Amino acid sequence: MAADQIKQVRRFNRTVAERVGVLQDHYLDGTRPYGQARLLWQIGDGETHDVRSVRARLGLDSGYASRLLRALERDGLVTVETHAEDRRVRTVRLTEAGWRERTQLDARSDALAASLLDPLDAKQRDRLLAAMEEVERLLTASTVSLDVLDPDHPDAVHCLRGFTDELGALFGFDPANSLLPDPGELRTPRGLFLVARLHGEPVGAAGLKLPADAPAEVKRLWVSPRARGLGLAKRILTTLEQQAVSHGRDLVRLDTNKALAAAIHLYRTNGYTEIPAFNDEPYAHHWFEKRLPATA
């Protein structure tokens, strides 16, 4: 990564921090700093939240999140309780006073947004908004984590269920009729299962089979609709290719259904060549392979 790229990112960060006022003790001329205000806003969607999910969404460590919550609780803005069914879990919700302050925070946030746009002419506003949308999309993409999990892990199961449900609605996919890999084929040393998480929530996955007597094979690549447009499918595919190389493989294969046009386009534009059928998967219409360089 080039040094001038790092400098540009740092300049951008400083400009945004100064312009939106996060350096002030009292964010948006309110009564509290930005961290407390952001947490208050995140909690205030009308639901009771698991504290762990709030921490994951905001990327906060447990100690800092606890200090922020204690400050809000001390001011009577939130109620933190132990979950009725699991005493290991803490929940948080806004009080009436919290709702009033969140309403004020929304109004002041709207005013700040307007102040960013007001000095600009119509063309400049369009440029700024388009740039903001692009930056938001790319920053969101950069927050996605990829982890190798056991295929029986709840996040892996969630993704496999999403894959099955979506394909079932699209073309009647029934896992009972498919050549589904045995979970053992997606565990070391016979394979692996990769899960993508956004703000701690599973949003995509794929498996990689590593049979001793055949090429590596990508299985069940899926990205949640809410995470599409982030380049995640390509990132998952590339990571699986790198994993295959790290396990000494130089060839990877996969199959797909004709209804999955986006997937077919992904494979073709990332160096996969269509080949004759190498399995009897009843839902497959296309079979692909890719020769992997040693430095994939």
Rank of each mutant, 00 (worst) to 15 (best):
D4L: 12
Q5K: 14
I6T: 12
V9D: 09
R11V: 04
F12G: 06
F12H: 06
N13I: 06
V22I: 14
Y27K: 03
G30N: 04
T31H: 12
T31F: 09
P33A: 02
P33K: 03
G35I: 02
A37G: 00
R38M: 09
W41T: 05
D45E: 05
D45F: 03
G46Y: 03
G46A: 04
E47A: 14
H49G: 05
V51G: 05
R52Y: 03
S53I: 01
S53T: 14
R55L: 08
A56F: 01
G59M: 04
L60Y: 10
D61K: 10
D61H: 12
S62T: 08
Y64Q: 13
A65L: 07
R67W: 05
L68H: 04
L68G: 01
R70E: 13
L72D: 01
R74L: 07
D75M: 02
V78H: 07
T82H: 09
H83R: 11
A84G: 00
D86H: 10
R87T: 11
R88E: 13
R88I: 00
V89N: 04
R90Y: 06
T91R: 14
L94H: 06
L94N: 07
E96A: 15
E96S: 12
E96Y: 01
A97K: 14
G98T: 01
W99I: 05
R102V: 14
R102P: 00
L105T: 01
A113G: 08
A122V: 11
K123L: 11
K123V: 06
R125N: 02
L128S: 03
A130M: 07
M132S: 12
E134T: 09
L138Y: 02
L138R: 15
L138P: 00
A141F: 04
V144W: 08
S145K: 13
V148Y: 09
D150F: 05
P154M: 07
P154W: 05
P154A: 07
D155A: 12
D155F: 13
C159T: 06
L160C: 01
E166W: 11
A169T: 05
L170V: 01
A176S: 13
A176G: 12
S178F: 06
P181D: 05
P183Q: 05
G184V: 07
L186V: 00
T188I: 02
R190E: 11
L194R: 08
L194G: 07
H199G: 00
G200S: 09
V203C: 06
V203G: 02
V203M: 02
K209V: 00
A212G: 12
A214G: 05
E217A: 11
V218Q: 05
V218N: 04
K219N: 01
W222N: 03
S224I: 00
R226N: 03
R226L: 03
G229H: 03
G229Q: 03
L230I: 02
L232Q: 08
Q243S: 10
Q243F: 10
S246Q: 14
H247C: 12
D250S: 15
L254N: 08
L254G: 07
T256C: 14
A259F: 14
A263I: 06
A263M: 06
I264N: 11
R268I: 00
T269S: 15
T269E: 15
T273E: 15
E274W: 08
E274L: 11
P276E: 12
A277P: 09
D280I: 00
E281Y: 14
A284I: 01
A284E: 09
H285V: 00
H286N: 10
R291T: 15
L292T: 07
A294S: 14
A294N: 12
A294E: 13
A294Q: 13
T295R: 14
A296N: 08
A296Y: 08
